Computed example of a mutant assay.
Amino acid sequence: MTRPTRVLFIGSTGSIGHLAVCEAVERGYHARALVRDAGRACFDPRVEVVQGDLTSVESLRGALAGIDSVVFTMGAHDGPSMIEKVDYGAVRNTLIALEGRRVRIALMTAIGVTCMDSRYNLASQAHDWKRRSERLVRASGNEYTIVRPGWFDYNDPDQQRLVFLQGDTHRYADPRDGVVSRRQIAQVLVASLGCESANRKTLELVSRHGPAQDSLNPLFAALEADPSGSLDGAHDEENFPLSIQPKRVIEDLRTVTSFASADDRSE
Rank of each mutant, 00 (worst) to 15 (best):
S192G: 01
F240R: 13
N199S: 11
G62A: 12
V35W: 03
M1S: 15
M116H: 07
D44M: 10
E204H: 00
L231P: 08
Q184C: 01
L136G: 10
G178T: 05
D153H: 12
D153Q: 07
A38S: 12
M1G: 15
W151P: 14
S266E: 10
S230P: 07
H127N: 15
E26K: 14
H127K: 15
T202L: 01
S215A: 07
I105K: 05
G17H: 03
D158W: 07
S197V: 07
A20E: 09
I83D: 06
R102P: 05
D44K: 09
G178C: 06
D53L: 02
P157S: 15
F164C: 08
E134F: 09
A186H: 01
S261T: 08
G141A: 14
S15H: 11
E251T: 11
V249F: 14
R119I: 10
S12N: 10
P149I: 10
A97C: 09
L54H: 02
N199K: 05
E58R: 09
V50W: 03
T257Q: 14
F240V: 07
G178E: 02
S181Y: 02
S12L: 03
F220P: 00
A97Y: 10
G141L: 13
V163L: 13
A97I: 06
A198D: 00
N217E: 13
A212L: 14
Y144A: 12
G100T: 09
F220W: 05
H77L: 13
D264R: 14
G14L: 05
R101C: 13
V206G: 12
A20N: 06
G178H: 05
S118H: 13
M116C: 08
D232S: 14
D252L: 11
V137I: 15
Q187A: 13
A212D: 06
A139P: 05
L136C: 10
K201L: 06
L216G: 03
A63D: 00
A225L: 04
L162W: 01
V57M: 02
D236E: 15
G89D: 04
R208Q: 15
A221K: 12
Y172W: 03
T114F: 00
G75R: 02
A97Q: 08
W129P: 06
G210Q: 12
G66T: 05
D78F: 09
E58A: 11
E134L: 03
T73C: 06
